[in-house]
Design a binder for these strands. Structure first.
Length: 953
RNA sequence: GCCCGGGUGGCGGAAUGGCAGACGCGGCGGACUCAAAAUCCGCUGUCCGAAAGGGCGUGUGGGUUCGACUCCCACCCCGGGCACCA
C-alpha cells in the first residue's frame, strides 16, 4: 500500500546513516531485549507479581489506555496515538523514580466479531484470537513499555469467570437507601426474618411462602427482571441499553432502527447510584465537557410529586415547578399510561384507542421530532386541581413520555411552552401564575397584561405571583421561585396531596443481550420458574461451543419480531441436573449473555492482579495501585486516556460497578478513574472521483498545490475518519517499514496538542526522520561509524551557550512531558539538537547523556542504542531524568525589545541584573528611539522585567 | 433551540495580558552529484520598496488596557453532545 521507499535507501549513501534499515535493526533488537529482561514489568506489593526489591519505596503510578477492541481490520496510524502518549508519559514518570504500571488488554467479546463470524462462518473465538495476535504484534513493534504479564482479554475463561463473579456480587446485593450503599441480600433477609425490617404487607416473614420470600428478596436485588418497554433492535436480534440507542432512535452499532417493545428483561439498578454518580464527579479530575455529559445523562431534577383526584383514582404527576400549580388548567397523560383505559369515557373510547395505536406504531425518531405540531385526544374525564378545586380535563398526548417522571403531567400553559402550544391548539384555558416583567412584553411587541390572551408564548422565569392563592395558601406577590416552591411543597405535604421529590433522567441499565458472543449469565431457572445464582465453585459458566451461532435473521424494520436466543440451540447445555443442597434437581440455564460493556467495567482491576485465582484482585494490591491519595481523594487510575465517545457508556457503567464493589467491601477506591484525558483523533484526507467514489488516497498526486489527481483524473478532497470505506488507511506497519517505529512515535507526538484531532500527513513524517538523523550524526560518524562523543574536560566541556540551551531544554521538556504537551517537548528537543548541530564541534558527554535521557520517552529504541554506545550496560528506562540547574537558566545580559505605542522599534542589550530605571534610561538613549520621540518627553514608560520596554509618547 | 470545544502563514501548529507565527511540512535559492534521490546550508506571513525601512496582519464588530491571539460584550462559521425530560 505504501508508495514510499524506505527512507535513506540509495546506492552511495554514507554507510552508517540512521535510515529505515538501521532503525529497524535497532528497534527489533531492543524489543527482544526488553521482553527477555522483563524491563517493564511493574512489581506488586503482594501476591505472585510481588517483588519487594524492585518495588523499593518508589511512588506508584497507574497509567491506563481505554480497553481496545481487537478489530479485524488491524490498526491504522490513528489507533496508537493515545497509546504512544501514555507510553511517553509512563516512561517519563518511570525516569522520575516512580513504579509505573502500564499495560493493555483486549475487550474481545461483542457484536463486531459475531457479525464478522456470521458473514464468514468463522467461529468468533477463532477470529477474536487471530485479531488479538495481530494487534499484539502491531503494538509490540511500536516499542510500548507495557507489562505483558498483565495483558488480559475479556474472552479468557480465567477473566470472565470473575466478570460472572462480579455479576453475582451485584445480583446478590440490594441498595439500602437509609445507609446510601449496597449491601448483601443475605443481610436484607436476616433483617426481614428477625422482624427488624417489616415486610411490605406487614405479615411476619415466617408466614410468607418460600416463593413469596424469594420474590420479595428478588425485587430488591441490583440485578432484577423487569417487564417494561425496552429497546428492541430486530436488525441486531437483541435488545439494547438506552445508552446504546442514538438520539435519532437507531442502534449505535450497525445503525439499525430501534423499537420500543414490552419484554421481560434483566436490568441493573444503576438508578440507585444516580446521586452518587452525579455528586462524585466533583472529586474527579476529568474534562469539564465529559462531566457535563454525564450530568446531563443522569439528569437530576428537583421538584414535587402532586396527586390529582380523578374518577380512576389519584393521578400522580412530577413537576419541577409546583409553584405554578394554580395555573394547571388540564392534565396530559402519556398514551401508554396505565390509567388511560379507566379514564376514557365511552364516547371518547374510539378516538383514544386510535390515538394509542398511532403512537405505538411510531418509531422513537418520529415521535421526537420537535418541529411537528402537538397532537392529542381528550379522555372524556376530569381531574381536580388540588389547590384550586377546579375540574380540569385529562388528555393524552405523545409529547408526554411514559419513560420519564410518572408518565403524566399537570399542564401549566402559561409557564411551559409545550403546554402553551397544546392549549392554543386545542382551545384550552391559559391562566397566568406569574406576571412577566414589562421588558418581556416589550420584547414581544405587546403591552403588559395579566390575561394570557395576548401572550405570544409561555413565560418561564422569575415574576410576581398572581392568581395563586386559596383559603390556606398564599403565593401572590413578590417572591422568588425558590421561596414559592418551598411554600407550596410544604402545603402539598401538609394536605397529603404531594411532596418535594427528585427525578432522574437516567434509567436502569438493560443488561441482557440475545446474542452468542458474550459472557453467559451465571443464572439458573428452577422448576418454580424462579432464578437461582450459579454457586461460586461452578464458575465460570463456559460459553458452549456452537456450530450455528447466527441469530435468526429478522427484518430490521419489523417491530413485531421477537428475539431468539442462540444459546437455546445448545439443548444439552441449556438444561442440567444439579444438587444445590436440596437434592439433585433439574435446572434450565438463563440463555442471555452480557453486553460488551460488562468486561470493560472492571478490567483495570484485573491488570493489577491478572493471575489471582482466589480473588478478582487482591485487596492489598488494589489499595497500593488504586487507593485514595488523601483527604477527599476517591482513588482510581492516575491517568486514563481515551476517546470522548465513551463519555456516557463505558465511563458510567464502570463507575457504577466500581461503586457496588466498593460498597460490598471489595475495594478501597470508590471511583475507578481519577484523572481522565481525552486524546484527539487522527483523521485523514480522502479523495472522490467524478462519480463520487473514493479512490486510493495514497495514489493521489497534488500538483499544483490545491489540485489533486488520481491516474490523471481530477479528484476532490474530503476530510474524515481513517477507514476502509474512504480508502485512506495508513498503517503503523508501513510507517515502521518506511521510517521505523521511533520516527512514527515522534511524528504522532509532534503533530499537535494531545487532545486535539488533526489530519494525518505522510508527507510530513520525513521531518522527524531528518531530526533523528541529525541526532544520530551527533553521536556517530556516518562515514566511519565511529562513536564521536567526547569525554568532558575539567571545565565540563560544554560552552556557556550550549549549557544554557541544555538546561533551558531540560526545564521545558520536563514540564511539557508532565503536562502531556508532547508536541512542544518535541520542538524544544529539536531546537537543542539544531543548536548542537550548528555548533559544528564534537558533542561532549555531559550534554550527550542528558540529551539521550530526554529523548528516550519519545524514541526509546534509539535512546537505548545511544545509551549503550555511551558505555552503559543497563537499560536507560530507569535512569533519572535530568534536573535543570536554575543558575544556568539566567544569562549575564538580556535583550529587551523597545516598543513605542506597542510596536517594536528597537532592541537594547543590558546586564541581566539591571534595575528598571537603568533599563528605561538605556531604552530612551537608543538612537532609533531618540529619533522617533523627536525630543518629546515620554508620557509613560513601562518596563517588563527581562522582556521589553513600552514607551508611550 | 440548549450545553461544551474551536477559528492564527500555502499546510500541521507555537505563544504565564508583554517582541505573533517557535518547531515541522511545503516552496524558493545554494552545496554535494555526470544527473537524480538522499543529506546539508540559507531564505520564506502579507503588501510597498533595489535596499534601508515602512504599512497591514490571529473569524467579524465593539470594549477594557501603556500593551489583547490571550480578558469582556455582541455576532458569524466549524466540530461534538443533548434535545417535547415536565
Amino acid at each position: 500500500m505504501t508508495n514510499l521507499p524506505p527512507s535513506g535507501t540509495g546506492a552511495d549513501l554514507p554507510p552508517h546513516r540512521y535510515n529505515a534499515a538501521l532503525a529497524q535493526e535497532i528497534e527489533l533488537r531492543w524489543q527482544d531485549r526488553w521482553d527477555a529482561e522483563g524491563t517493564f514489568e511493574a512489581p506488586n506489593p503482594a501476591g505472585p507479581l510481588a517483588d519487594a526489591d524492585r518495588l523499593a519505596d518508589r511512588p506508584k503510578r497507574f497509567v491506563l489506555d481505554m480497553f481496545p477492541y481487537p478489530s479485524g481490520a488491524g490498526l491504522h496510524v490513528g489507533h496508537p496515538l493515545g497509546y504512544i502518549g501514555t507510553d511517553v508519559y509512563g516512561r517519563f514518570r518511570r525516569m522520575m523514580g516512580e513504579n509505573v504500571l502500564h499495560s493493555i488488554g483486549y475487550d474481545a467479546f461483542g457484536l463486531p466479531a459475531e457479525q464478522y463470524a456470521i458473514d464468514t462462518g468463522t467461529h468468533p473465538r477463532v477470529r477474536t484470537e487471530q485479531n488479538i495476535e495481530i494487534m499484539r504484534r502491531q503494538l509490540r513493534r511500536l516499542g510500548l513499555a507495557h507489562d505483558q504479564r498483565r495483558s488480559v482479554a475479556t474472552t479468557d475463561e480465567a477473566y470472565y469467570r470473575w466478570t460472572q463473579w462480579i455479576f453475582l456480587q451485584i445480583y446478590n446485593a440490594w441498595y439500602d437507601e437509609t445507609k446510601g450503599q449496597a449491601r448483601p441480600v443475605a443481610e436484607l433477609e436476616a433483617e426481614l426474618a428477625s422482624g427488624s425490617r417489616p415486610t411490605p404487607d406487614g405479615r411476619p416473614w415466617s408466614q410468607l411462602s418460600r416463593t413469596e420470600q424469594r420474590a420479595l428478596i428478588d425485587s430488591h436485588r441490583l440485578v432484577y427482571l423487569s417487564e417494561a418497554p425496552v429497546n428492541w433492535c430486530p436488525g441486531l436480534g437483541t435488545v439494547l441499553a438506552n445508552e446504546e440507542v442514538t438520539a435519532d432512535g437507531r442502534s449505535d452499532r450497525g445503525n439499525y432502527p430501534v423499537f420500543k417493545k414490552r419484554m421481560r428483561q434483566w436490568m441493573m439498578r444503576i438508578t440507585a447510584y444516580a446521586d452518587r454518580l452525579l455528586d462524585d464527579l466533583d472529586a474527579l479530575d476529568w474534562p469539564e465537557s465529559i462531566k457535563t455529559m454525564q450530568r446531563n445523562w443522569i439528569g437530576r431534577s428537583h421538584g414535587a410529586n402532586v396527586s390529582f383526584a380523578s374518577p380512576a383514582g389519584a393521578i400522580r404527576v412530577f413537576t419541577t415547578r409546583p409553584d405554578t400549580l394554580f395555573g394547571a388548567t388540564f392534565m396530559v397523560l402519556s398514551p401508554e399510561h396505565p390509567m388511560v383505559g379507566e379514564l376514557t369515557t365511552a364516547d371518547q373510547a374510539e378516538a383514544v384507542a386510535a390515538y394509542q395505536r398511532e403512537a405505538a406504531a411510531k418509531k422513537d425518531v418520529d415521535r421526537q421530532d420537535e418541529s411537528r405540531e402537538k397532537t392529542g385526544v381528550f379522555t372524556g374525564s376530569y381531574a381536580t386541581n388540588p389547590v384550586t378545586g377546579t375540574e380540569i380535563p385529562v388528555w393524552i398526548a405523545d409529547y408526554v413520555l411514559m419513560g420519564y417522571g410518572t408518565g403524566a403531567i399537570m399542564a401549566v400553559p402559561s409557564g411551559d411552552q409545550r403546554d402553551f402550544e397544546f392549549a392554543r391548539r386545542f382551545g384550552l384555558p391559559i391562566v397566568a401564575t406569574q406576571m412577566p416583567p414589562d421588558a418581556w412584553f416589550e420584547g414581544h411587541g405587546t403591552t403588559p397584561s395579566v390575561s394570557c390572551d395576548t401572550w405570544p408564548e409561555a413565560y418561564v422565569g422569575e415574576g410576581t405571583y398572581v392568581n395563586s392563592a386559596n383559603d390556606s395558601l398564599m403565593l401572590d406577590g413578590e417572591r422568588t421561585m425558590v421561596e414559592a416552591v418551598a411554600l407550596i411543597s410544604a402545603w402539598l405535604e401538609r394536605n397529603g396531596v404531594g411532596e418535594a421529590t427528585i427525578t432522574f433522567r437516567l434509567r436502569d441499565w438493560l443488561f441482557a443481550r440475545q446474542r452468542y458472543w458474550g459472557e453467559p449469565f451465571p443464572i439458573l431457572w428452577d422448576d418454580n420458574d424462579m432464578p437461582v445464582a450459579v454457586p461460586d465453585h461452578l464458575l465460570p459458566v463456559l460459553l458452549p461451543p456452537l456450530e450455528d451461532f447466527k441469530p435468526v435473521a429478522a427484518d430490521p424494520d419489523d417491530a413485531t419480531s421477537e428475539p431468539e436466543l442462540p444459546l437455546g440451540r445448545v439443548k444439552e447445555w441449556a438444561e442440567l441436573t444439579l444438587d444445590l443442597g436440596d437434592g439433585p434437581r433439574r435446572y434450565k440455564r438463563d440463555l442471555n449473555v452480557m453486553p460488551q460493556w460488562a468486561g470493560s467495567c472492571w478490567y483495570e482491576l484485573r491488570y493489577l492482579d491478572p493471575t489471582n485465582t482466589q480473588a478478582f484482585v487482591d485487596a492489598e494490591v488494589e489499595r497500593y495501585w488504586m487507593g485514595p491519595q488523601g483527604n477527599g481523594h476517591p482513588g482510581g487510575v492516575d491517568l486514563y486516556v481515551g476517546g470522548v465517545e465513551h463519555a456516557v457508556l463505558h465511563l458510567l457503567y464502570a463507575r457504577f460497578w466500581h461503586k457496588v464493589l466498593f460498597d460490598l467491601g471489595h475495594l478501597s477506591s470508590w471511583e475507578p478513574y481519577h484523572r481522565l484525558f481525552n486524546q484527539g483523533y487522527i483523521q485523514a484526507y480522502a479523495y472522490t472521483d467524478g462519480r463520487g467514489l473514493n479512490v486510493e488516497a495514497s495514489e493521489v498526486i497534488e500538483n499544483p498545490p490545491g489540485v489533486w489527481t488520481h491516474n490523471g483524473e481530477p479528484v476532490t478532497r474530503v476530510y474524515g475518519k481513517m477507514g476502509k470505506s474512504l480508502k485512506n488507511i495508513v498503517t503503523p506497519d508501513e510507517m515502521c517499514a518506511t521510517y521505523g517505529a521511533d520516527t512514527l512515535r515522534l511524528y504522532e507526538m509532534s503533530m499537535g496538542p494531545f487532545d486535539a484531532s488533526r489530519p494525518w500527513s505522510t508527507r510530513d513524517v520525513v521531518g522527524m526522520s531528518r531530526f533523528l538523523q541529525r541526532v544520530w550524526r551527533l553521536f556517530v560518524d556516518e562515514e566511519t561509524g565511529r562513536f564521536q562523543v567526547v569525554d568532558a574536560g575539567v571545565d565540563g566541556g560544554a560552552d556557556p551557550a550550549t549549557l544554557a540551551a541544555l538546561h533551558r531544554t531540560i526545564a521545558g521538556v520536563s514540564a511539557d512531558y508532565d503536562g502531556l504537551r508532547f508536541n512542544t517537548a518535541v520542538s524544544k528537543l529539536i531546537e537543542l539538537v539544531n543548536h548542537l548541530t550548528k555548533a559544528d564541534e564534537p558533542m561532549v558527554r555531559s550534554v550527550a547523556e542528558p540529551l539521550t535521557v530526554m529523548l528516550s520517552p519519545l524514541v526509546p529504541h534509539l535512546a537505548e542504542e545511544l545509551w549503550q554506545r555511551l558505555g552503559h550496560t543497563t537499560t536507560i528506562s530507569y535512569e533519572p531524568f535530568p534536573v535543570a540547574d536554575a543558575s544556568l537558566l539566567v544569562a549575564d545580559t538580556v535583550e529587551y525589545a523597545v516598543q513605542v505605542k506597542g510596536k517594536v522599534r528597537s532592541r537594547i542589550t543590558v546586564p541581566a541584573d539591571a534595575d528598571d530605571a537603568t533599563v528605561e534610561a538605556a531604552a530612551l538613549a537608543d538612537d532609533k528611539i531618540v529619533d522617533l520621540l523627536a525630543g518629546a518627553a515620554p508620557r509613560r514608560v513601562i518596563v517588563v522585567k527581562g522582556s521589553m520596554v513600552n514607551i508611550v509618547p
